[in-house]
Simulated assay, not measured.
Amino acid sequence: MVAERRSVGVEEEFLLVDPGDGAARAIAATVLRLDGASARTEPQDGSGLEAELHAEQLETGTEPCVDLDELAAELGRTRAHAAEAADAVGAAVAALGTYPLAIDATAFPKDRNLRVLERFALTGREQLTCGCHVHVGVADDEEAVAALDRIRPWLPPLLALSVNSPFWAGEDSGYASFRSQVWSRWPSAGPYGLFGSAAGYRRVTAAMLATETLVDDGMLYFDARVSQRHPTLEFRIADVCHDRADAVLVAALARGLVDTAVREWRAGRGPDPVRVEELRLHTWRAARSGSSGELVDPTTGRPAPAAAVVERLVEHVGAALEESGDLARVRELLGAVSARGTGADRQRSVFAETGDLRAVIKDATVGR
């Protein structure tokens, strides 16, 4: 008997590129206008195409799903939609966490974007990065914050499974996810402390906004947060995935984490008190080596082979995955990424074969 399952949806950010030479194309406004989408800078309804900070990007969003096959089909639909919309203006979309070549990105022409770039200067100008955001349905803010407090130690393994951004400004960064390093420059980004309650979450975020450092609440860039627009908990730590199957895997594990965390909360089990300073190191290790090196095991606080830490994660959420009917699918998806490697592995393999970062970009174009 499959238990009632929480909804899950995925937002993916893509780069707009020339299908011939991989050059970045600052044409998001044209794509959106011809597609009939409104050129918003933040998703409104969880589906369709959206603008991002820079004109070389598009964001997609699936409808909420409960079944993983349904989610995979939705990701196929949204990726195809983005590819078709770009193709209509002679461009393509690439599933890359960073643009591999040196570039001066172009702001998408919205007042908010211009305010962000004026305030954050080089930090904003260099944010041509693409992530994968997973939304998991929650009953209310109290449940969301209870889960937020309890998922913290398990977020770095999600990054390790999704890494897809080794190249930056024309060279190998040495990181499997350099996107996460660039993203961490935002003053509000990364791991977060314990909130304790929905009221505690509101106090912290209100205090952050009161400093008048952030442009608005959309810049609360925690690795996971309470969504401002949907009744969801939003996971923001992952790179956009090279393969949509990896996005399904991240989404399944995210839902399992929320289910597990809520059960712990209802049973009166408190969150792990691990400090933010430690979590930053856990995240850094995940960004550096992805799933091919060592990660920090949340159960011990010590390094262990990435495969062992991922297995710890599956064990942690195993009961929830079993009840939702997702355990076998998760193990299948983990086996697939283990066999073929992550997006970062793929990018490095293509570069090793060709010596050409433009070939890396072309290889990552959706629907190639």
Results as ranks from 00 to 15, higher is better:
E4V: 15
L15Q: 11
P19D: 07
G20V: 07
D21A: 12
A24T: 10
E42N: 02
E50P: 00
T62Q: 13
C65Y: 11
L68W: 00
L71T: 14
A83G: 08
A86G: 02
D87V: 09
D87H: 10
A95M: 12
Y99D: 02
D104M: 02
T106P: 04
K110H: 13
E118N: 09
L122M: 15
L122I: 13
R125Y: 13
Q127K: 00
H133A: 04
V138L: 08
E142V: 14
A146W: 08
A147I: 06
D149W: 07
P156L: 11
A160S: 02
S165P: 00
W168E: 02
A169D: 14
G170C: 08
G170S: 05
E171H: 07
E171T: 05
S173H: 03
R179G: 02
S180A: 14
V182D: 01
W183Y: 06
S184K: 08
Y192H: 03
F195T: 00
G196H: 04
A199L: 15
A199R: 13
G200C: 07
G200M: 13
Y201G: 06
V204P: 01
L209W: 07
L209N: 00
T211Y: 03
D216I: 04
D216Q: 06
G218V: 04
L220K: 05
V226I: 03
C241S: 12
D246P: 01
D246N: 03
A254V: 02
D259W: 14
E264S: 11
R266M: 04
P273Y: 08
R285M: 13
R288W: 15
R288L: 14
S289D: 15
S292C: 10
V296L: 07
P298H: 10
T300Y: 13
A306N: 08
V310Y: 01
V310N: 00
L313N: 03
V314R: 03
A320S: 15
L321G: 02
A328E: 08
A328R: 06
E332G: 09
L334H: 04
L334I: 02
A336R: 14
R346E: 06
S349Q: 10
V350P: 13
A352G: 10
E353Y: 04
G355A: 09
V360A: 04
T365H: 04
V366H: 03
G367C: 01
